[in-house]
Design a protein around this nucleic acid. Structure first.
Lengths: 111, 111
DNA sequence: CAGTTACATACCTGTACGAGTATATACGTA
DNA sequence: TACGTATATACTCGTACAGGTATGTAACTG
């Protein structure tokens, strides 16, 4: 599988990613939550892992998977060229912030 | 083809979308810029059109295609669940801005 | 040790889909 | 009218890939 876009074309893989977005999960937990056969989960995880979408931590017999953001960032970056179609001003502000300076160190809200 | 994700899995379709992102183009213009055979362009445009990524305006014998943002917005929305992985601080800042009217004019760059 | 759990992998099979080629349709022009 | 241009579609073919089933491997438990 070539690009990050091809990887997330598969609905089950997107479901796995969405599940992992909330918190890391073992294979059997994914299997349980998404109600899909274990070999299917493992195979999709392999694809996701080799494409850099997830990484595994070994915990005894378990493999706990978690998100790696890089490929998703790549997709987010590709969308950049199109954002002006639906977010004329809000997005510009967002991008601006992304690159400017560290978050303001204030805990009291500015009223 | 089911989802918007499946549509943009195809590299040539992404190329067409990227081209149209700058300005609308006729089929033969796309054919020229991307150097791909005309039937291929037409077929990809059909897929993109039926999925709502583009729409065509008729100009005599020409069909001028342009971006429709909705499906791309859908993908952008899906990415939302993952953005906290790479933009943890922007969130807080965003919320802050929500209630602060003028865009902060700071120039503290850390380069 | 044997048995069980947790996960990965090998193999087969069906099918969706993109490439390529040829042809159809629609419009414009002489 | 006939011909060229612009685009769409039909058809065949090859292949990537997801699903399913079975099996392999590693670790824990009694």
């Amino acid at each position: 599988m070539e690009s990050a876009f091809g990887i997330i074309a598969e609905p089950n893989r997107r479901a796995i990613l969405s599940l992992l977005a909330s918190s890391e999960q073992s294979v059997s937990e994914i299997e349980y939550h998404l109600r899909m056969p274990q070999p299917s989960v493992s195979k999709h995880l392999r694809v996701l892992r080799e494409a850099g979408f997830v990484e595994a931590r070994v915990d005894a017999q378990r493999r706990v998977y978690r998100i790696r953001p890089e490929p998703l960032m790549e997709i987010d970056a590709w969308l950049e060229s199109f954002r002006h179609f639906w977010s004329a001003h809000v997005d510009a502000l967002e991008r601006h912030l992304d690159r400017t300076d560290p978050p303001p160190r204030k805990k009291g809200k500015k009223q």
